[in-house]
Each structure stands twice: as C-alpha cells, then as structure tokens.
Design a protein around this nucleic acid. Sequence first.
DNA 1: CGTTAGGGCTAGGGTTAC
DNA 2: TGTAACCCTAGCCCTAAC
Lengths: 136, 136
Amino acid sequence: MGAPKQKWTAEEEAALKAGVLKHGTGKWRTILMDPDFSAVLSLRSNVDLKDKWRNINVTAIWGSRQKAKLALKRSPLTPKHEENGKALSVVVQSNEEVVDAKPLAMASGTPRNGGPKDLLARLDGSTQMILAVCSS
Amino acid sequence: MGAPKQKWTAEEEAALKAGVLKHGTGKWRTILMDPDFSAVLSLRSNVDLKDKWRNINVTAIWGSRQKAKLALKRSPLTPKHEENGKALSVVVQSNEEVVDAKPLAMASGTPRNGGPKDLLARLDGSTQMILAVCSS
DNA sequence: CGTTAGGGCTAGGGTTAC
DNA sequence: TGTAACCCTAGCCCTAAC
C-alpha cells in the first residue's frame, strides 16, 4: 500500500531530539511546524514523532537500569483499577537516567499554554538530556 | 498536567445517557446541574459531556466498516469479564443506527403531569437504563 | 461573560511488518 | 521472538459563533 514501512534516518531522529529539546515533549505539531525541522521531518506526521519518541525512550530505559518492568505485565488477575472519584497515584520515575523533558517544559510556571522560556534553565544539575542531536 | 486522563466510568456514561434522554442533546450544562446527575458527573464539565457524547455516537455508527476488520482481529484469548459487578442489560439491536434521544425526550411534549421524568428520576449509582444508545 | 459545536491534538493501547 | 513503525481512538484543548 502506501506505507512501505519508512525507517527513521539519523537526520530525522536528530531533528526530533533537537525539537524536543527546543519545544519540550508533547509539542509534536509545534516541532513539525518549526522551520528548523520541518524540512527534515516533512515526511513525518505528529503522531509519527510521538511514536518515535516513545520507541527511543523505551530502548533507552532498557539500556539503562530498568528491566523489571515487563515482568509486571500479563497478570492473570485483573489489574483493572477503575476508580470513580478516587485519583490513582502515579509514581514518577526517579531522576538519573530517564530522559524526561516534560518537567523541563512545564517548569516554566505557566501551566497552560506557556512558552518555552527558560527551557535550558533547568538543564544543568541533573543533566539527563545530553544525547540531543548526536551531532548536527 | 494534574489530570493523567480521566477515563469515563460506566456510571458516568449511564448518567450522561440518562441526562440526554431527559433533557435532550446539547443541554450539557442543564444535565450537569440536574440533581439526578450532578453527583455522578461532578468531576465533569459541560464540555466533557459534549465530547463524551460525541465519542459515544461515533462508536455507535460503527458497523459500516472496520467492525468486521477488528472483529476478526479480536484476540483468541480474552477472558475479560471483569466488570465492576454491575451487570449491564444490553439491548441487542439488529439495526446499527444511532439512537436519537432527542425525539424521545421531546416526544412527551410538555409533560405537565406524569411525564417520563418520574421513570428517570430514580437514577442512582446502579446502571439501569442502558436500553437506548447501547447498540451492537 | 457563558455555552455549545466542531476541529485538532496528544497519550496510550493495539497491530502490522520486518 | 522481539522490535520498530504504524494504526485507532478516548479524552482534552482551542477557537469560532451565538
């Protein structure tokens, strides 16, 4: 059909990483419309960016230090926690190896439609976002 | 980002359907302020109601396509019977049409006395009026 | 200013191709 | 068998119109 399974090139992946550094995670459409990346990623959709970023992080976590995660899958019992009004607590991964750009983007203080003002302000102590662009 | 995505429960969906039956579509704020549903839908906004109703109708129209597609893809092993104890009475309809609740609600005209309101008024936590809108 | 209708986006699960 | 790429959709957000 029209989808011959288009593998990601190094340039595309680099552009994606740079775009996440610049705009933060979740801003796939924004990255796509950024003139700096629109050329390289012209063949990709915003969903593609999201999926690729997911794959990158999955592999990165596995290479790091978190392997006991799939073991908790496929539980014969019902892992279904359907609460009505109760909020389920979600544990956030500890710092270190997990590449999490979300706090970066949201750390600017504006919860709603903020701007990537001081994106790099937080990028010092933890320093987990290195990677960024293998070299461009 | 404090909302990790709040999935609709069966109770909420039932309340929404009942509310549409009672007040008609488009009266989201009215449904929300109805004492019969305000408790269940307290965490939802009028926009949420609108969006959910849209999703419900979209999925209800299914059947023209993709249904057979996914039906065959249905995993051979899916012993999922873990409903929350609430047994929904599903009315099977050979016709897969969208059940328009608007005529139903309006069909009573001006129920000065003894309208269908009394029937729906006793809506509590249990699901009991799935009758309409629950195709396939 | 509040509400609704509709378009658009994202997150996550699921599926296909390799 | 495992993994990357892709598909599907529920829930949410944004905007225009009223």
